[in-house]
Lab assay of single mutants.
Amino acid sequence: MSGNGNAAATAEENSPKMRVIRVGTRKSQLARIQTDSVVATLKASYPGLQFEIIAMSTTGDKILDTALSKIGEKSLFTKELEHALEKNEVDLVVHSLKDLPTVLPPGFTIGAICKRENPHDAVVFHPKFVGKTLETLPEKSVVGTSSLRRAAQLQRKFPHLEFRSIRGNLNTRLRKLDEQQEFSAIILATAGLQRMGWHNRVGQILHPEECMYAVGQGALGVEVRAKDQDILDLVGVLHDPETLLRCIAERAFLRHLEGGCSVPVAVHTAMKDGQLYLTGGVWSLDGSDSIQETMQATIHVPAQHEDGPEDDPQLVGITARNIPRGPQLAAQNLGISLANLLLSKGAKNILDVARQLNDAH
């Protein structure tokens, strides 16, 4: 009898209710805020589980004197976190989706994509230029951005401005803007500013005609071990179906173009009346040469937790077992079709030249 009692006690200790789920994140304040929001949602869904947040620095956090596009290494903000995932030191990792490459290392998958916040870019102005827009900034004003995508589009749109690289986390960039006289304004992701509670610093939100956004911008991705079915089931509740389908289309477009950090590629997606609209573009580094096109596809946005595919093969690095396969494939095909259209119009040449120029500098 006593033996059975011990077995029952052991089973209770090993039951999922007692389990601590370890969540990996970057150390920056924004990353911690984003991770806290994901953990809060998981806690609400699984009140019996405990969650421990483990923060670590990544290569991208450490190399702050070089433009991201020049470092010449993929997975700048993800490699150390993936290493911890691989060694079973954490069970899942919360990322900004735009930091996750469209091809993940073997053994990993994006197990959830959370509801997207505003994906557009924002302009934050130096205190002396508050009330201005990019259009009304004085001639030769210097605007800071760490992104080739932003610089290429904005140089084309605002030729009277000069664009220079600015690195560091959000706090560091804002301090550089406010305390030094080098920059009249800087460009940042609206979602990051909003998550930090800095709505009052948003001086201008850039519309798609001015600057399309990065693939996955404004959404959070939760990376897990691809074979860890328990954790895949656990994080599945975080999937937002519309965000998922938009981001599958965007990531398929980028992957098929073979774009990345070192080339200016941008997108804009919208879901309306059962249609998914995808606009994508590529630019030369100075913005003088560009190709942009829009395509659409009829896609039914499923309700969360309709029964999805059981075999769960990944699409552009994403596993969404609780979302039907048909809409996911339709979104992926839309991204591939748009990429093929741009490639047929000469996108590869623009991107190759951009890559060579970026590598040469």
Rank of each mutant, 00 (worst) to 15 (best):
L104E: 05
L338R: 04
S45P: 08
A214R: 00
G287C: 06
R116Y: 04
H160E: 12
V93N: 08
T269P: 01
A112F: 00
G203V: 14
H268E: 15
E210S: 05
R164A: 11
Q275W: 03
S37L: 11
M56G: 06
D286L: 08
E86D: 10
G346H: 05
M196F: 14
H305Y: 15
L134E: 03
Q296W: 07
E73A: 09
Q314R: 03
E82A: 15
V93C: 08
G168E: 02
L315R: 04
I231S: 10
A320G: 14
I318S: 11
T58S: 10
Q155W: 11
Q332F: 05
Q194S: 04
F253Y: 13
S290M: 15
D359L: 05
L238Q: 08
Q314I: 07
N118K: 08
Y277E: 04
R116H: 04
E52V: 12
S337V: 15
F129W: 01
L154N: 05
P119L: 03
K157N: 15
S57N: 01
A67S: 05
F129D: 08
P241M: 15
T136I: 14
M212C: 01
D121M: 03
I71D: 07
L357R: 03
R225P: 13
L278E: 02
V301C: 08
Q314A: 04
F108T: 14
V263S: 09
W283N: 12
L220F: 07
A297G: 10
M271E: 15
K62S: 10
E306S: 11
V39C: 11
L188R: 02
H256P: 05
E209G: 08
L278V: 05
S290I: 15
P309W: 06
A226L: 08
G60N: 09
T294Q: 00
T279Q: 08
T269I: 00
D289V: 13
L278M: 06
D289E: 09
N322I: 09
V316R: 11
L343F: 10
I187D: 01
S141H: 11
D312F: 05
G259W: 01
G308I: 14
A303P: 02
E310R: 13
K140N: 11
I54D: 06
A185S: 07
L329F: 11
A270H: 11
S57V: 14
L254Y: 00
S288Q: 14
T102G: 09
A189K: 05
E86L: 10
S288A: 13
H305M: 07
R355Y: 08
G131E: 08
G259V: 04
K70V: 14
D352M: 09
H126I: 15
I248C: 00
V90L: 12
H95T: 04
T102D: 06
G274C: 05
G72C: 05
E89V: 11
K128C: 09
E258C: 15
H95W: 02
L334F: 11
L97K: 04
L68D: 09
H207E: 14
K74W: 02
L104P: 08
T190V: 11
I53H: 01
E223N: 11
T243I: 08
D233P: 05
D121Q: 01
L341T: 14
L170H: 09
N340R: 08
N118R: 12
P105C: 06
V316K: 01
I231N: 07
G281R: 09
S69M: 14
P101W: 01
M295D: 09
K140P: 12
A219G: 08
K79N: 13
L206E: 01
K115H: 08
A252N: 01
V224S: 15
H95Q: 08
V301M: 05
A55Q: 10
T133N: 14
R255N: 04
Q181C: 03
A320H: 01
A226P: 07
K132F: 14
Q153T: 05
